[in-house]
Every structure is written in structure tokens, then in C-alpha cells.
Design a binder for these strands. Sequence first.
DNA 1: GACTGATTAGGTCAATCGTCCTAATGGCAA
DNA 2: TTGCCATTAGGACGATTGACCTAATCAGTC
Lengths: 220, 220
Amino acid sequence: MAIRTIDLNIVTADPEPFGCKEAGLGGADTRQQIVEAADRLFYEGGFEATAFADIAATIGISRGNFYYHFKTKDEILDAVIAQRVERTRMLLAAWQRAGNTPLDHLRSFAGMLITNRAKIMLYGCPVGTLSAELAKLDHAALDRAAGIFSLFREWLADRFAALGRASDADTLAMHLLMRSQGIATLAAAFRDEAFIRREFAAINMWIDEQLPSAVLSEEP
Amino acid sequence: MAIRTIDLNIVTADPEPFGCKEAGLGGADTRQQIVEAADRLFYEGGFEATAFADIAATIGISRGNFYYHFKTKDEILDAVIAQRVERTRMLLAAWQRAGNTPLDHLRSFAGMLITNRAKIMLYGCPVGTLSAELAKLDHAALDRAAGIFSLFREWLADRFAALGRASDADTLAMHLLMRSQGIATLAAAFRDEAFIRREFAAINMWIDEQLPSAVLSEEP
DNA sequence: GACTGATTAGGTCAATCGTCCTAATGGCAA
DNA sequence: TTGCCATTAGGACGATTGACCTAATCAGTC
């Protein structure tokens, strides 16, 4: 999986969405800086393990300033998830524009494993690890975090449907998501890049096998 | 994956390994109680999120008592991992005794997904989620936690080798581990039992396909 | 019954957590 | 300049953390 931050910055809209004073660091900008830093720190260090002080030190503001922009830590988490949702939407849209066929699109998804392999080996998948942590904390935001999975799930299912596999599109989508999650987890545990590349190749082979024309033994 | 605690208690040796006073609650027993409670709480709530007070409250001892048995929290973590390692060894040995063929053994591994599905949907896989957390914390115990993965990895590779797939045994073992991890992660995120059962069936199909006799297009 | 060593309870410690308050800052409008 | 409003810095708060110390308790031995 691995929605990336850096990569997605390219996809993301201009850094000044709506009017903001002029000489940087207006309120909206600081808020965005907080979300940006929290996004990265939540990914690299975990949600609970990341303290306000860590975020403040990263962007160089005082701890007390947080309360003006966010009342609680959960509000920051919500903002981070909302940003990831938005960037995931844009990433999926970009993949869909860039590729000509559903097959291309599926390969773009798998390509994340290679593109983000360095971060994956260190921190796993941002979506998977956040969901896992929130599940253990019994946190109400788990549903929202899992919603990012759903974006991929539904988009992948659409791609499989466009490929002529409408009847089991969701099953195939979940299978692909499952593989990306398993790869990310083991890659992080073993810090094994060769494993990522090997399973990346296996995923692409599996995708090819899902082409209706390649399915020989399906309906007798 | 999911090394279970309750299930493994059956496999585990007697609760009084070496001589201990007589009327319960001698020192060694308290230590074991701490490890037992920590194992469960680390799994259900995460390592960092679990406080000494939580463990103490679970087994009904005072907080100050910890220092006699463990100097630091990391020592408790080490003891928990060591216990999981030992129980994993015994679980693998039990599987090997129970099954007649390597195929049976591989199916025992996959069966964990069904046996532990309830806990997996709530907390994911104990090994995978602990490794993910320790990776983010940059904790030195990550290697030891990943060592539990290695136990499964090497045992599975042996099974594949016994099945006549010696040349790619480790690759197959990692693929099987990868699937179990992906299934656990998504099952926890979506709380979806049907997904577990579907992918469990797919894993068993995949295992069958790895039988050399079933491989038709391998060496031309 | 006194002694001994293992075990435990209770409390203290500084550090850190998220939260919250208040005064200072700075740009803009009148 | 004056005042206004958004923004920020800095600190204080109560709670909780892991770590640590000490006195009480216990069983078994002499």
C-alpha cells in the first residue's frame, strides 16, 4: 500500500489553496505545517508515540500554539486522515489519467511497492500501520483510517470490473490489497528489499492471470 | 499468523516449571503471571500503550513489585518475546507431530487464520503488529520480534523442501507468511470475517498448486 | 522464638504527557 | 496614532509515565 507523502506532494494542489496574507506563515499555513509534520511523524513513529512537542520542534513553533489550531490530539489525527484521504483520491485520479487500460492502472497500484520501498522497509505501510494501531487503541478514528483502504478497494474493484471481472471485482481488489499489506509488513520486519521486488513481480504475474482471456479453466 | 495465547497454553508446559515453595504465588509464579498478562496486554493494546499499572491491575499486585522481577519495561518485553518464541517452537513441533505429510503441516499453518479469527479481527497478528510497532519506535527488540517470524519462515521452508520444492522453499515460505500478514491486517481494519474465510480457502488452493505433481508448466 | 533471605506493598521521584490560559506580537483598518 | 483581530509564545495545570527506594511480610531453618 503505502500512500506516500513526498510523492503525493507532487500530486497535491498548490501549497496556498486559499488567500493567505502574503509573506508566509499566516494562520492557515501554520495549520497546514502542523498537519504535514504530524502526517510524517505519525507514519514514522506512530500516533501515540508522537507528542505535541515533537511536532512543534519539527516545524519550529511553540507547544502552546497548537490549541489555537487544534483543540485535541484527536483533531490533528482527523486532519491527517482527511489529508491522506484527499491525497489518495488525487493519486488514484492521477493513475487513471496516466494509464490507458485497467491493466495499466492495476500496475500503477503495484508500482507503489517499488516507488516507496525505502520507507516501507523502515515504517511499513502508512494506512496499514495506522489502522493496526488505532484498532489496538480501540480508537474511534479506526473507521476513518480504514476508509482510506476503502478508496483503494473501490477503485481497484472498478478496475477489475472494467477488465471484465465484475462478478468478483471486490474479491480481487481485496486480494490485491491483502498482498500489498503482507508485503509491507514483512518487508519492514526483515528490512528485505529483495523480498519486495520478488513479490512485486509475483503480483504483476497474478494481475496478468486475472485477464479474462488468460483464464482458461474458469467456466467449463 | 497470530500466535495465540489461550490456544498455546495447551501446548505450553506445566505452569510450575521448577520447584517453587508450594502454596501458590511464590516468586517465580508472580513473574510468570506478569509475563502472561504483559503478553496479552501488549497484543491487545500495544507495547507502548500498556503501562505497568495496567499489568499490575490485571494480576492484582502492586506497581512497586515489578522492580523485583524486572528492572525495566524492556526487560518485560524481552521476556514476552522469549515466551512467544518458546511457544511458537512448541506449536510448530505440535503441528509436525499431528500431521502426517508436509501438506498437512502447511494446512495447519493456514488453519491459524480460522482458529484465531476472532482475535485477529480485533487486534491483528501478534507478531506482525508487534514488529510494526517496534519498527516505528526504532526499538532494539525488533530483531527478536522478527525472530518469531523467522521460526515460521524456516519451518515452512522445511515443509516446502520436504514437498519437493527445495530450490524455492524460502520464497514459498515468505509468500505464505506474506499472505497471513496481509489477511490479518485487512481483517482487523475491516473487521471482516468472510474475507478471512475467503482468503483462507485461497491459501489452501495455492498450497495445492505448489505440489510438484500439480505443477505442469514448470520445467519444460 | 530468633534469624535469614526471598518476596511484596506502598510511596516517592523527575520527566513527560495533553490540555489550557494569558500576555505579547504583528498586520491592517480607521 | 489608535484600536482591532488573528496569531503566537510561554508557561502552568493535573495526570500519568517508568523507575526506584524502603519498610513490611512471609516461609523455612536453626
